[in-house]
Write a protein that binds this DNA or RNA. Sequence first.
DNA 1: AGGCACTCTTTCCGGCATGGAAAGCGACGG
DNA 2: CCGTCGCTTTCCATGCCGGAAAGAGTGCCT
Lengths: 97, 97
Amino acid sequence: MTALEPRFDAVVHAPPRLQICGLLAAVDTMEFASVRDAVQVSDSVLSKHVKQLEEAGYVQVRKATIASRQRTSLALTKAGRAAFDAHVAELRRIAGV
Amino acid sequence: MTALEPRFDAVVHAPPRLQICGLLAAVDTMEFASVRDAVQVSDSVLSKHVKQLEEAGYVQVRKATIASRQRTSLALTKAGRAAFDAHVAELRRIAGV
DNA sequence: AGGCACTCTTTCCGGCATGGAAAGCGACGG
DNA sequence: CCGTCGCTTTCCATGCCGGAAAGAGTGCCT
């Protein structure tokens, strides 16, 4: 295993985004609506946070028109997973766990 | 053991305060200056964050004039430790760890 | 074609948190 | 009485945040 360097990441740390990353870290892919419901935020708020994660290169947004419905699915990128893992490692360090 | 209820706490979550709580959780008591150096913030910023933690009832501030020097020592209160632990539990839940 | 619904996006806006700089302040020591 | 130490408080500029509402792309229905 590669040694993971604990590193605080403000983009990941904000509550809504931490949740989003946590969800995505567990499932490979998740749909916009599911994330919105899980995190319990409005469409606009989720959209804005996802955008930030996307711009940071942490989340990949895929839009597809499946079964005549627009579907936006989200997934952590490699960088996103790395950032999340590193951030969690840092939280662990801070928590002294 | 009492089941610890994971609970997100915004007061604890802010980066500087999370660090402060993490430090205090490990040592019972720590001096202002030491915390300031560990967290790497200015006096004023630390003072402001400590004040917030104090007002939340999470940190106890003791001032003493020892050896002709003013010493301010900080310590987590019971409530502070509970809040910190609960918050960490929540972070763990979010992180899926 | 036109209208409507669905699914996000973007804009607008007010409010709160944050940090740096600097002034304040109480307790000593000289 | 002045200067210093050790925080505290004030002032200020900036940025993030969420809610509401308007926008926009796509497909369905009549």
